[in-house]
């Protein structure tokens, strides 16, 4: 597809033309995502979906699903746990990725070249990353075997439980392992366009590596990191594959809860599953709006400096 090269359209007419050209895409999104979302909302209110087999269902209120969702402590706890796992994972990815990118950017060329292996997890599917995590961290995994071989622990029962425990470390490890190289890759793309003299000047003015990172590199990366944080957080919020392999039974991550309610529960549970998805989508939307607003305010405050 080739489009004539010309200045970006700014006039109203041009804008309309762009909107018109994008329209097929928008219609497609509206039909797929939009219809799906509307259908989910309808099902959560029992306005669509299978005819209830449970006669008691007929007499329940429209808001039955939301009422159940908000009054069952386990479901709310699931939602809270999922937000926590997603947030910790995204923070971990961004922190590790940005520092990693900075170190690699400052490193000599040969280190950079050798360091390129960091990209490996980017091409691995999430499910593979989940299995790698099991391979390393399970009670019979590599780490436990090494600890046993070194005589640090005896027997499988004595190994500290990393996976499948209520603190969500398993999914977090997997999400960080999968996500931080992505942050590194994107950050290096920005850093490679940063003029060397910025760092040189800072160093000449007496800044150490930590100061350079905080005062020079981080502000340059901030807009990118904000976007990456949102992307990683949202993925971890709704991702199914990693919780499926690594999630604990209690508290359960919300995608697993939704799956169990929808496929393994009774028919009345399907509306609760849909309500949970609607709430998850609302949480995601709210998060993006709030985060973007905070990020904008912070960067506006920094601008005059």
């Amino acid at each position: 597809m080739s489009y004539p090269r010309r200045p970006l359209p700014t006039a109203f007419a041009d804008r309309r033309r762009v909107a018109f050209r994008l329209a097929p895409l928008l219609v497609f999104f509206a039909m797929t995502v939009g219809v799906g979302l509307v259908h989910a909302v309808l099902q959560s209110l029992a306005l669509a979906g299978p005819p209830a087999l449970d006669p008691a269902r007929e007499t329940m209120s429209r808001w039955y699903a939301y009422h159940e969702l908000l009054t069952r402590p386990d479901l709310l706890r699931s939602l809270g746990h999922t937000v926590y796992v997603a947030a910790v994972s995204a923070v971990g990815c961004v922190a590790l990725g940005s520092v990693g990118a900075y170190l690699l950017w400052r490193a000599p060329d040969w280190v950079r070249r050798a360091g390129a292996v960091y990209r490996l997890p980017i091409i691995l599917p999430h499910i593979v990353v989940a299995f790698i995590t099991v391979l390393f961290w399970s009670e019979t995994g590599l780490v436990a075997s090494l600890l046993r071989a070194a005589g640090v622990v005896r027997g499988t029962a004595a190994v500290p439980r990393v996976l499948f425990a209520g603190h969500g470390v398993g999914p977090i490890l997997a999400y960080v392992y999968k996500g931080f190289p992505f942050v590194m890759l994107m950050s290096l793309g920005v850093l490679d366009r940063v003029p060397e003299r910025l760092v040189t000047t800072a160093t000449m003015l007496g800044a150490g590596p930590v100061r350079v990172f905080g005062a020079v590199v981080l502000p340059l990366l901030a807009p990118l990191l904000n976007q990456l944080f949102i992307i990683l957080f949202l993925y971890a919020l709704g991702g199914f594959d990693i919780p499926w392999i690594l999630g604990a039974s209690r508290p359960q991550m919300i995608p697993m809860t939704v799956y169990a309610l929808y496929f393994q529960g009774s028919l009345a549970d399907r509306s609760i599953a849909m309500a949970a998805l609607v709430l998850l989508a609302a949480t995601a939307g709210l998060f993006v709006v709030v985060y973007a607003r905070i990020a904008r305010r912070l960067s506006a405050r920094e601008r005059p400096v």
């Binding site: 597809m1 489009y3 004539p4 018109f20 050209r21 329209a23």
Partner: peptide
């Protein structure tokens, strides 16, 4: 050309 492309997209 862009017209054709848009038509194809539609």
């Amino acid at each position: 050309a862009s017209g054709t492309a848009v038509a194809v997209l539609w």
